[in-house]
């Protein structure tokens, strides 16, 4: 089992992104089903178990989506805690559920030769399937961000209009700046959900 030694704790990572003006979904660590219900405040939520030992949360069965009622939350919480046993120690994170039709990935890595690189692609579950991604070396300029987007086959899905194009370009520039100036060596914002003319990163992984 691969563990991620340098994985930055979720709330800290979220704060790093917030400082860079990058929006993440509202979330909070919870220690009980009741706390989760309180966090939900009547809206739908997601529960995730976070563990250094689980590389891919969804592959490891550590995500429960679309929980509306207190009953759903209680049963999902109990079930998730049971599944997460084998990844101890873990914590459970509650997030507001966001609905959007398009998911993108923005990532960063450190190349042995060229240093920090930035990646944009069609995100979520499609990342590994279609591998429709564009890569650039940091620091990127606006031109690079635009050309990354236009390099993607899925551009008409991700950015069907001028406004969504500008949204992605400005987000890419923010992530590039944040990644370059931080000690982070790897970064995954995946998925970032595009919805209602804006976006929220709903899963994040920053490795130092």
């Amino acid at each position: 089992m691969i563990t991620m030694a340098g994985l930055i704790e979720y709330e800290k990572a979220q704060a790093m992104l917030a400082r860079a003006g990058i929006k993440t979904v509202e979330s909070s660590y919870v220690s009980s089903a009741e706390a989760s219900i309180k966090f939900a405040g009547g809206g739908p939520i997601v529960l995730k178990a976070i563990s250094q030992k689980a590389l891919h949360k969804s592959h490891s069965g550590l995500v429960r989506l679309n929980l509306w009622t207190p009953e759903q939350v209680r049963s999902a919480y109990a079930d998730l805690a049971k599944t997460a046993e084998k990844f101890k120690p873990y914590r459970i994170l509650a997030q507001k559920m966001i609905h959007g039709s398009v998911e993108v990935i923005i990532g960063g890595k450190t190349d042995a030769q060229f240093g920090k690189m930035l990646l944009l692609g069609l995100g979520g579950v499609y990342v590994e399937t279609f591998k429709d991604v564009a890569l650039r070396a940091c620091p990127i300029q606006k031109y690079d961000a635009q050309s990354m987007l236009s390099q993607l086959k899925s551009k008409p899905i991700i950015a069907p209009d001028k406004a969504s194009e500008e949204l992605i370009v400005s987000l890419l520039l923010k992530v590039s700046k944040m990644f370059e100036s931080s000690k982070a060596t790897e970064l995954d914002l995946n998925p970032i959900i595009l919805h209602d003319g804006t976006y929220h990163a709903v899963d994040l992984r920053i490795i130092e």
Binding site: G107, G108, K109, F114, M117, L135, E186, L187, D188, R205
Partner: peptide, 16 residues
């Protein structure tokens, strides 16, 4: 460790 690292190898870095 990440999707990004697995999608962006050395050949892709050169291409970028």
């Amino acid at each position: 460790h990440s999707h990004t690292a697995s999608l962006a190898g050395s050949a892709e870095a050169y291409e970028a």
